[in-house]
Write a protein that binds this DNA or RNA. Structure first.
Lengths: 257, 257
DNA sequence: TGAATAGTGTCTATAAGACAATATCCC
DNA sequence: GGGATATTGTCTTATAGACACTATTCA
């Protein structure tokens, strides 16, 4: 018998590495949905594909996972080699493994969610033609879920903006990332991953509102944040604003849940 | 060049199926954390392994994903062939891919969370020596996370119960499942997946309390559930209880979030 | 001084917790 | 009737939303 039986009840009867090799098995990549919030826009970093498949389309930074590499390490490696970022927040999002998602064959991807403050992103080159910080258009509210659209950010927001075609199932992956971050926002101080070390309450609220896609009550947002024990006064204030400067806060680790 | 370069920047330069085959790639399995709540105990279905690796230890129902099969379909297939269950709630949990998690080689698993009412589980044979509905002991509170212990359920809960040794990283997978379901419980009517079609409010609260590992205020739980619009009166009441019988309710799909 | 936003204080509305009173079953 | 739990109603407390008022900066 050259090939193993496909009897479902037998699929675990594999005790040795030699047994394993008889099974055809998928290829595994890692894709990173790197999100940021800039002004009032939710954005994702996209790279232009220079090779098949989906040549010329836009895609998340990604690549094949090495055979001796943990997937989180692969995500960090890809983020550093393709984007030039390290030390940012990264967590596993979901695995996308539709049999037809890659025309080359069976390639599944372990998708990761990464968050970064726009200030940190400005340190990497964004003026290259093969790299774009795309604005996301989320066509659903709350945590409904579904694919999102990527638009080229532009100064003249009046006219219709260019829609960037996405390769693979990356529109769905980014949509899952948005859904995930919306869900975490309710019970986790995840917003500070999108901010510099010191920030104003107004900016924190902007981040929350942009991520959630809805306005929040200013008074209760302030009270809730200050009462959470997650924020720490710095005593410093913002500068060069044409109004009363707001105090800068810093996130602190909570002692207990 | 027989093997492809492992230069990270080159890992996406694979345009054809032939290119792909040059890369060593992991094997992919699916494991299903099938949870239920019985009485005041959170339980998971475990199977005794009859072959290496981890022969004799206990593990989640799982198996290799077929090359042309979506992972959710693999999870459903495994649930039916190994446990005899179909039509239960199943959702993707996370992918566990530590390079050393399987002594046979690089085998990653796409783990799924499945929920079922204990009544439905009673229809399958649980008196087999290679199958057990293990009680879970969660050594952390809230959504801290971490591995959990599996104990053999027994009538005499007074004495120390037998701890079931788990193979692979399945203690961690089950822990992730518990963490996930605790998180969902706050904003999703997930509890009804662990109940028969009709149930009393007391039983619903028991499910919530068992999953969360903490007691809940009865009054506000009732009010919250009834105000959520997720419950529907049936007009019927429970029978054969030695106290005033409670009304039976039914879950309804919410019209909007 | 005026525009703009920060920050404080207070009132009201809503939700959560506590608890008393009554209802309904089995024994 | 007694025991047990369901169900309803009311009171108290905590939190969220609304809004008025003061504070501080720059132009």
């Amino acid at each position: 018998m050259d090939k193993p039986s496909s009897d479902p009840d037998k699929t675990l009867d594999v005790g040795t590495a030699a047994d394993l090799e008889r099974y055809p098995h998928p290829f595994v990549t890692t894709d990173v949905a790197l999100l940021t919030v800039e002004g009032r826009a939710l954005k994702a970093l996209l790279l232009k594909r220079t090779d098949p498949p989906f040549e010329g389309k836009w895609a998340l930074p990604g690549g094949f996972m090495n055979i001796d590499e943990a997937p989180a390490a692969a995500a960090a490696r890809i983020l550093e080699s393709k984007v030039g970022l390290r030390g940012v927040f990264v967590e596993q999002l979901a695995t996308f493994a539709d049999p037809d998602r890659d025309p080359r064959g069976r390639v599944l991807t372990i998708a990761y969610l990464a968050l970064v403050a726009p200030e940190q992103l400005n340190e990497i080159a964004l003026d290259r033609s093969d790299r774009v910080l795309a604005e996301l258009e989320v066509p659903w509210s709350g945590e409904t879920g579904g694919p999102v659209d990527a638009l080229r950010s532009s100064e003249q927001t009046v006219t219709g903006r260019e829609r960037l075609p996405l390769g693979f199932d990356h529109a769905e992956i980014i949509g899952t990332a948005v859904k995930r971050i919306r869900g975490k926002l309710d019970y986790t101080p995840i917003g500070f991953q999108l901010l510099p070390e010191r920030f104003t309450l107004r900016r924190l609220q902007d981040v929350h509102e942009t991520l959630l896609g809805q306005e929040l009550n200013k008074d209760s947002f302030r009270r809730r944040m200050l009462a959470s024990g997650e924020l720490e006064h710095t005593g410093e204030h913002e500068r060069d604003v044409d109004h009363r400067p707001a105090e800068l806060y810093r996130f602190v680790r909570r002692s207990a849940l």
